[in-house]
């Protein structure tokens, strides 16, 4: 019936850009196993995963933003601001309401809402006021960082002791020995992958990033989809903060520092195109794991100084982008 079925079909060759992140991850794990027997221990693995969950959750949202041709530099500061605000309000409520579960629930709701609202502000200014995403989020990055410093009065905002004890399990407990941040990260990653690959929203993101004009001519609501990517990212920042606050119970001017760059790096290492048009959430997850494993490996071995962590991560990022360029659009 169709020409496609009668025409000789070439076997799809293994695309280097598709498998490169997985290969890199496997190589890292093998190196880790060779260098330190404790590397694959339950404690170490859960530790790495739980620590990478915050960046990971944010990077899932970043995947959508970048796929749709956007960028958000403000997420690290946004996380710090949301965390600071959450702690401040929870402390105030503890004084007036006397603490307990309702305070935690209000705090969580506040964090989610503030993240969503912050993402909405970014998105609305980028889509309606037509401000370049890079510039706008550079601006909001400074604003949120400054706001959290101001809220903390230059110091550290700490959750009250009683509340901290009550809230602690959200980071440290879990089910079947897997802590909540890992579970949430995994669930969100699976959901994100499904949304990216199997829903109209994901398809529209890729179409807009690939060629905005084609998307518009195809009656895709370009501005609304763009806006939604930033709202989604903001909400995920809120979720990451909900997981992060019980870990240390505090927020300061240095909370979430450089998270935006780590998230963007993870997205790019995972094979999503920086210029947009193609993105994959599972790649981002692999990217996050690669970045945290490098740090973990350097800590576990005395082979290379852990101070060189940044340098090695930098090399990996550059390699990832070079691979992308050599193999063209990955799929």
């Amino acid at each position: 019936m169709s020409m496609a079925t009668t025409a000789p079909t070439r076997r799809p060759r293994v695309n280097l850009a598709v498998i490169a992140p997985i290969v890199a991850l496997i190589v890292l794990i093998l190196i880790g196993m060779a260098l330190n027997p404790n590397f694959l221990s339950y404690a170490n693995i859960t530790n790495v995963l739980a620590r990478s969950a915050f960046i990971g959750i944010i990077a899932i949202g970043m995947t959508f933003v970048i796929t749709a041709g956007g960028l958000d530099l403000s997420v690290g500061s946004m996380a710090a601001f949301v965390a600071g605000l959450m702690i401040l309000v929870m402390n105030m409520l503890t004084e007036s309401m006397g603490g307990g579960l309702p305070v935690i629930l209000i705090g969580i709701a506040l964090a989610l809402f503030t993240g969503l609202a912050a993402g909405f502000v970014n998105g609305i200014l980028i889509t309606r006021a037509g401000i370049e995403a890079f510039i706008l989020t550079l601006g909001t990055m400074g604003i949120y960082r400054s706001l959290v410093t101001w809220l903390a009065d230059g110091g550290t905002l700490s959750l009250g002791y009683e509340m901290r004890e009550l809230y602690r399990p959200v980071y440290y407990d879990g089910i079947l020995g897997i802590s909540w941040p890992i579970i949430v990260f995994a669930v969100l990653a699976i959901l994100g992958e499904i949304v990216m690959r199997h829903t109209a929203f994901g398809r529209h993101c890729a179409a807009i990033g690939s060629n905005e004009k084609v998307a518009r001519y195809s009656s895709v609501a370009v501005l609304r989809v763009r806006l939604m990517t930033y709202v989604l990212l903001g909400t995920l920042v809120g979720i990451a903060v909900v997981m992060y606050v019980p870990r240390l119970g505090s927020a300061s001017a240095t909370t979430g520092l450089l998270w935006e760059l780590e998230a963007i790096a993870a997205v790019i290492i995972g094979g999503t195109l920086l210029k947009g048009g193609f993105g994959r959430v599972w790649g981002t997850v692999v990217g996050v794991l690669i970045l945290s494993l490098i740090g973990n490996l350097l800590n576990l071995t005395d082979f290379v100084s852990p101070y060189l962590n940044g340098a090695i991560q930098g090399v990996v990022i550059i390699l990832a982008v070079v691979l992308q360029r050599n193999t063209g659009a990955a799929r």
């Binding site: 529209h204 890729a206 179409a207 084609v214 048009g277």
Partner: peptide, 20 residues
């Protein structure tokens, strides 16, 4: 420039305007 996503497959292009 405005009709087709050149880096996407036939299927993705065909249904882009009618995904719902």
């Amino acid at each position: 420039g405005a009709g087709l996503l050149l880096d996407k497959t036939l299927r993705e292009n065909l249904t882009l305007g009618q995904l719902d």
